[in-house]
Structures are given as structure tokens and as C-alpha cells.
Simulated assay, not measured.
Amino acid sequence: MAYVSVPKDLTHVKSKMLFGLTKRQIVCFGAALLMGLPLFFMLRGSVPTSAAALVMIFAMLPGLLFGLCEKHGQPLEVVIGQIIRNRFTMPKARPYQTNNLYAVLERQRQMEMEVKAVVQKAKRRQAGKAVPRRKAGDTSHYQKV
């Protein structure tokens, strides 16, 4: 009896159109052929055939790579775009930042204490119990009696 394995996740199965190739592969290979063959026939008369074939291979290579290469289910142009974005357009250092609620509350408490001290000092001055100030030339830390 014939046994056929069926994958559990059918989203990774790609539909084949022609010769076991997907639509994407057919388009990429066709574009590579449209670039490489005319280049070969134009160069064949002026340079040796082996050099023309080598130029044709290098001209067709990007089309073949875009048709065949995938990484983690993503096509090659998406992978190249991510590499370019991460290497050149994104900032190199990404500092870790959090919204620390405790630090915000601590700053708020400190500000409230400062305001409270200023208000109490103003109330003491209004009541006539103002703290005497030092004179301009006095550098001592203690009051003179």
C-alpha cells in the first residue's frame, strides 16, 4: 500500500504550476532568461564564448537567487531589505527605557516636600518669627548672639 505524508500545517504548502515550480519561481527564471540570453548573443561575437557565457551567468544570477532562496519562509528581497534596514537605517544603540512609576512618585514626593518647606518658611515670616539672615560679610555657620 502506498504511503503519502501529509503536512500538519497546510499554510506552508506552495502550489506548483509548471514543472514543479511555483508562480514566483517561473516569473524570476523568465526574467533571468530575458536578461541573460540577449546579453550572451550580443557578446558572443566580440568576446570568446566562454567569457560571454560567464557574463550571462552573472547577469542571470540575481533572478535565479530571487526565485530560489528563502529564509524562514521569506523571499530573498524581504531578507535583504531587513538586513539593509538593520545595518544602515536603524540606530545602532537602542537604550533600554522604562516608565518607572516608583521614580515618578518619588520625584513628586520630593517636589511636594520642597513646596511645603517654602510655604512653612513664608508662614513663619508672616507671623513675625522669621529666621534672621546672615549679613553679607559673615561667613560663619552659627548665629552671633
Rank of each mutant, 00 (worst) to 15 (best):
M1C: 07
R109H: 12
L65P: 04
Q108K: 10
Y142K: 15
R124N: 10
L61R: 01
V131T: 14
T49I: 07
M35H: 08
F88P: 01
L101A: 12
R94A: 11
S46K: 15
Q74D: 10
D9T: 09
V55W: 01
N86A: 14
K144C: 06
V115Q: 14
K8D: 13
K123E: 01
P48W: 06
A51S: 11
S140F: 09
I57V: 11
A31M: 11
V6Q: 04
I26Y: 04
E70T: 04
G20P: 12
A51P: 03
M42C: 14
M56N: 01
F29Y: 02
L76Q: 00
N99M: 08
P91Y: 07
Q97L: 11
M17Y: 14
D9F: 03
A117M: 02
K8W: 09
K135W: 00
R109M: 13
L34C: 14
K121M: 11
K121N: 13
A59E: 02
E70K: 08
H141N: 05
V78R: 07
A59C: 08
K123W: 01
F29E: 01
A93L: 12
V4A: 04
Q82D: 13
A130K: 01
H12C: 10
V55K: 00
I57G: 10
P95T: 06
M113L: 14
C69D: 13
P95L: 06
R124V: 02
L39V: 06
V115A: 15
E112W: 15
R109F: 10
F29R: 00
K123R: 06
E114I: 10
A103E: 15
P38E: 11
I84G: 02
I26N: 05
L54A: 06
R24N: 09
F29C: 04
L76E: 01
L76K: 00
P132K: 06
G45R: 14
K116D: 14
Q143T: 11
V4D: 05
K129F: 08
C28L: 12
K121Y: 09
M42F: 14
P91D: 08
R133F: 09
K8C: 09
